[in-house]
Design a protein around this nucleic acid. Structure first.
Lengths: 352, 352
DNA sequence: TTGAAAGCGTTACCAG
DNA sequence: CTGGTAACGCTTTCAA
């Protein structure tokens, strides 16, 4: 017993393939009686059109690939990172609203194994330096959304199908550092990721530049991969300095409430002894005591922009080449100095 | 300028389509020279085989659907739940290792819009009661992995392509309750999800039965959907009782460190005033002070079992109809009574 | 109004 | 060892 095909329905209904196709798709101009009859028969036989055959015919698959590249070397850690989890979800939802499905791509694997998938377009999130994936897809004629650097690396002719969504990561970092400095911080420590993804490179670079400009000592630890233990160890190391930091800015995602707990166990209070800002999408950050200041790279908006760009490109609608988004710094009590209270912010804590 | 096809390469290389196909796929018995020549030409033209056409030809797509159904009514909240995030990741990885890609399916949308996707098989995670999705796919001849209840609902003939992966959720709950009772808890409160997914129904039923058997008063709150604020509110309500609970078991996922923090703000210490066990996959739970006891439904093992079953079915290999897994209760300091110290566990806390 | 036939791009079977 | 040709299952054009 094999699957029932279009021609089987046609035979059973005593009509031709064309009539069946038209009847089921609502196309053509058939008498309602015939249409209904065919539908009846099709239902009775449990007929389901073969999706692949339709795809071949229509020339597109309405399938979009999605790859998160930041930690290519440490595959698949990204489930634990709220940022990626939310981005995947948001992209899937946005794509679906345009009628596209999303396929999760491997971060590693046999050279260009990803090209065997029937994809109309691809999202490459946080490509590493000289990431082969974006070039491969573009060369295969598959439109890609990545970031500006990835497209620039390819040179003029190769990046034709490319679109980008980007943040000014340096700006986000400077915003945080300026805020902390304004709150009186003098020794700002940073936990960063040691990856060649744009986010990490630009953020670290911005921190270094900022320290140089302001004559501050650099206090930075780079993590080869995320992970609770690694991150907590890094924080502990930072506090082991002879003169410990008075502010901490994490660029690597970690459970915000846990970090707060760990800092307290190290004998420091927040924000009294230490001002704290976390780069995280963890919704729990707003609910701790004190609430934790966060720098967010807006997975929802990023997803919307990426999908808009890619879908416009696929459906031949005009659109920009890319979109630059602004990181969102939410200042909460964890990074507001108790010594230098700022009334407008104090009011804000009350409601949180 | 359209995409370059197989015949274009054939023409350019001065050979036939067959030869090109054989040369590129390593099939047939061609002289190395021809093979190399064809490959050269193909590369030169930037030829990429059309994935869809291959699919049609081969009869399968090597694409697997994945749907998380627990909160169908509240679509897409699941990114915030570590359980689903990890399950999606684990399934994707396991599928990829067998050469299958994973497509994220919509939880809602136009009636059977999911059937238009070219899928070889589907994972339906936490189907709700009488979930239409599993019946639809099975009727369309697409093998499905779901849970036993979903298959039983369909009756004998309809569930042919069905496989299941299940937990004895009631057993997990009883295990936790027995543990808490053994630690001296007398008023065990529960935060549950108000969903018709097996997990919630069986867990809640087990709690009710257990309370009845042990003559305990039920203290349970059902949440229509997950969410930080909702969960915290539920906990607060539980503590508003005249005689507050002395143990808490959460079935809804929430940031474990945050919950600990919130409980303290309610003026209760853990485990002194309150024993705590959380159903969660949050890795942070093991790092708080005290470490939090967790009940885990092993996304990694679940994924492995589901993929094994589905792939075996797809590739015609014999396999069981389903697999029953055991939830994993990790007892940590948060649920061990300080009044009734158990030496073997006390030793364990020290290292954590 | 209906049906026959021509693709879509690939792979596989057989003649040559 | 090679190349024509049929099939995969559907949509669509065009002629009857």
């Amino acid at each position: 017993m094999s699957r029932v095909r279009l021609v089987d329905v046609a035979r059973a209904a005593g009509v031709s393939k064309t009539t069946v196709s038209d009847a089921l798709n609502g196309t053509g101009r058939l008498p309602t009686a015939t249409r209904e009859h065919v539908r009846q028969v099709a239902r009775g036989l449990g007929y389901r059109p073969n999706a692949t055959a339709r795809l071949l015919r229509s020339g597109h698959t309405r399938l979009l690939g999605l790859a998160a590249r930041e930690y290519v070397e440490t595959p698949w850690v990204y489930a634990d990172l709220a940022y990626f989890a939310q981005l995947v979800t948001a992209i899937t939802r946005a794509a679906l609203s345009h009628g596209y499905g999303v396929v999760l791509l491997p971060t590693s694997g046999p050279e260009d194994c990803w090209l065997d998938m029937p994809l109309d377009g691809v999202f490459v999130i946080d490509p590493v330096e000289h990431d082969p994936m974006v070039g491969d897809f573009l060369a295969a004629g598959v439109p890609v959304v990545a970031d500006r650097r990835a497209l620039d690396e390819l040179g003029g002719d190769a990046r034709d199908g490319g679109r980008w969504v980007d943040f000014d990561y340096g700006k986000g970092t400077r915003q945080v550092l300026d805020h902390l400095a304004a709150q009186g911080a003098e020794r700002i420590a940073v936990v960063a990721g040691a990856t060649s993804a744009c986010f990490h490179q630009q953020s670290v670079r911005a921190y270094r530049d900022w320290c140089a400009e302001h004559g501050r000592e650099e206090r930075i630890i780079g993590l080869p991969s995320p992970g609770v233990q690694l991150t907590l160890d890094a924080v502990r190391d930072l506090f082991a300095a002879p003169v410990p930091p008075d502010a901490l800015f994490t660029l690597v995602e970690i459970s915000a409430p846990l970090l707060l707990d760990a800092i307290r166990r190290l004998g420091r209070s927040v924000p009294g002894d230490l001002l704290l800002v976390c780069t995280t999408e963890d919704p729990a950050a707003a609910y701790t005591d004190p609430p934790i200041s966060t720098l967010s790279f807006l997975p929802g908006e990023t997803a919307q922009a990426a999908v808009d760009l890619l879908v416009a490109r696929l459906e031949g609608r005009p659109s920009e080449q890319g979109r630059l988004l602004e990181a969102d710094l939410q200042i909460r009590a964890s990074s507001v100095s108790v010594a230098v209270p700022r009334p407008e912010l104090a009011g804000r804590h009350a409601e949180l």
